[in-house]
Computed example of a mutant assay.
Amino acid sequence: MNIDNKHSIRTYLKATEILVAVGRTNRNATIIMDFLKSSMDINNECEFSIDELLKVLYRKSPVIITKALNILRLTNIIEAKVCNRVGIIKFRINGNAFSHNVDGIENNTRIFFADLNTSIIGEDGRVSKQAIDGFRVHKESGGAV
């Protein structure tokens, strides 16, 4: 499966509710999500440094990135692993939300699939503040990237 620069990305209807909730909750999370999905490879993976993400957002504080990434993790839109030695974050984008529009993609077993966490959407259509405040990537990290 070769991908050229003319490929497109599928956004699945079942992901619409959670994607809209993320957009209503945190604009930076939506910008990062759009950047990641447009950068993902055939396995729905990509990697970037915090500095690269800050440039995308035109921001200077990594706290903004942490908050946005935590929302995307909490909703199961992404999985992110930090490689501390090189300062790179490896991202896997949920195949239940996005995929490449190429033949045979459904047979790719390397793509990350998880149920989208729609249970955290509040009555106001946003991701629940209690869910965000209670989310920790690792209990010992205090919620850091």
Rank of each mutant, 00 (worst) to 15 (best):
P62W: 00
V63R: 05
V63T: 08
V63M: 04
I64D: 12
I64V: 13
I65S: 03
I65R: 02
I65D: 09
T66R: 15
T66S: 08
T66L: 03
T66C: 07
K67I: 04
A68Y: 05
A68T: 03
A68H: 03
L69R: 07
L69Q: 06
L69N: 06
L69T: 04
N70M: 03
N70R: 01
I71R: 00
I71W: 00
I71N: 00
L72M: 13
R73V: 10
L74F: 07
L74M: 11
L74W: 10
L74I: 11
L74K: 10
T75I: 08
T75C: 08
T75M: 07
T75F: 09
N76G: 06
N76A: 11
I77Q: 08
I77K: 09
I77S: 10
I78L: 12
I78C: 11
I78W: 14
E79R: 13
E79H: 13
A80P: 15
K81I: 13
K81Q: 12
V82W: 11
V82T: 14
V82L: 14
V82G: 11
C83Q: 14
N84Y: 12
N84C: 12
R85S: 14
V86D: 06
V86R: 15
V86M: 12
V86A: 09
G87K: 13
G87F: 08
I88R: 15
I88K: 15
I88A: 13
I88L: 15
I88Y: 12
I89L: 07
F91W: 10
F91R: 10
F91P: 10
F91M: 08
F91I: 09
R92L: 09
I93Y: 03
I93L: 10
I93C: 03
G95Y: 02
N96Y: 06
N96G: 04
N96T: 05
A97E: 01
F98A: 02
S99G: 03
S99M: 10
S99I: 06
S99W: 06
H100R: 04
H100N: 04
N101W: 01
N101Y: 03
V102C: 01
V102F: 01
D103K: 05
D103Q: 03
D103I: 01
G104F: 04
G104I: 02
I105A: 05
E106V: 02
E106N: 00
E106M: 00
N107T: 02
N107Y: 03
N108W: 07
N108R: 10
N108H: 11
N108M: 10
T109R: 07
T109S: 10
T109F: 04
